[in-house]
């Protein structure tokens, strides 16, 4: 139950959505784009989110696509994680997304919602970071296609009133060998302690990590260390651990030291899975 009410709009075109936002924003209604809406509902009920106008973008055609277009796979931002999993067009995404929340919730949580979430795990972004994907963004100045690396730094840097519409991923990344694993504090449910997604392309291993820092990331420095030829796997992992972004999370899910322990073993697993390295 939300302690506040809001106006509810369900535009059918991107332009309409963008204009509505402008209009409602000018009226001071703190409008919010809404696709799965789980975060508004769960944070709103404990007073951590507020809006006076919701713009539900689920009916916008461009946000619902899931198709191969030329050499790219397009995935709409309002598709639910379950829809993406069931279609299974991007196995690394399927695997990584299938570890978010739980199955029923993933029937409501959408790709765009997860990537743009305030809660900092945003695990669905990891495959796109690895695949150098592009994202389609709609705004007042129309649509634009940009490299995800240009707009995702810890979080998706959307301007006020912009909408994440689609992701576009080159098919060679979709076919690449991958690894994805989520370690939790205990057993098989809960937030990640560490989630690692990795893929191998052009003889290089790429990794992206969630749960280590208060943002998901892919780091050039980490990958350079991991791919250093002529070094033992242990030395490569040590090298990667030495160049991690900061800060390392230290919370009820796990201490910073323990997270590093977990990450170390997971990176070893990445090398074992993708680089044929055998340890022990």
């Amino acid at each position: 139950m939300l302690p506040f009410d809001f106006e509810y709009y369900k535009p059918e075109t991107l332009q309409e959505a963008v204009e509505l936002y402008q209009y409602l924003d000018q009226q001071g209604k703190q409008p919010m784009f809404f696709s799965g809406g789980t975060e508004l509902i769960t944070l709103g009920r404990i007073d951590l989110a507020y809006t006076e106008a919701v713009i539900d973008i689920k009916d916008i055609a461009e946000c619902k696509v899931m198709q191969v277009s030329g050499d790219h796979l397009l995935i709409g931002s309002t598709l639910t994680l379950t829809q993406i999993e069931e279609a299974n067009l991007f196995p690394l995404l399927t695997k990584t997304a299938s570890q978010v929340a739980d199955h029923s919730a993933r029937g409501k949580i959408t790709l765009g919602g997860n990537i743009c979430a305030r809660i900092f795990y945003r695990e669905a972004v990891l495959p796109f970071l690895l695949a150098d994907s592009q994202v389609v963004i709609a705004g007042t100045d129309g649509g634009k296609v940009v490299a995800i690396h240009d707009v995702f730094q810890g979080e998706l840097k959307l301007k006020r009133g912009e909408i994440l519409v689609q992701t576009a991923t080159e098919s060679r990344f979709i076919r690449a060998p991958f690894f994805s694993f989520k370690r939790r504090q205990q057993w098989e449910t809960g937030y990640p302690l560490i989630t690692v997604a990795a893929l191998k392309i052009d003889q290089e291993v790429r990794v992206a990590v969630s749960g280590l820092c208060p943002f998901p990331f892919r780091s050039k420095e980490v990958e350079t260390a991991l791919n250093k030829s002529g070094q033992s796997a242990v030395a490569r992992v040590d090298g990667a651990l030495a160049v991690l972004p900061k800060p390392i999370l230290n919370d009820v899910e796990g201490s910073a030291e323990y997270r590093l322990f977990v990450l170390r073993n997971l990176l070893v697993d990445v090398l074992a899975a993708l680089d044929g390295v055998r340890i022990r």
Binding site: W187, T189, G190
Partner: peptide
């Protein structure tokens, strides 16, 4: 951890 997403009873399959 006063929520069921942070206070986590055993789930099916665990």
């Amino acid at each position: 951890n006063p929520q069921l997403r942070t206070y986590r009873p055993l789930r099916y399959g665990e």
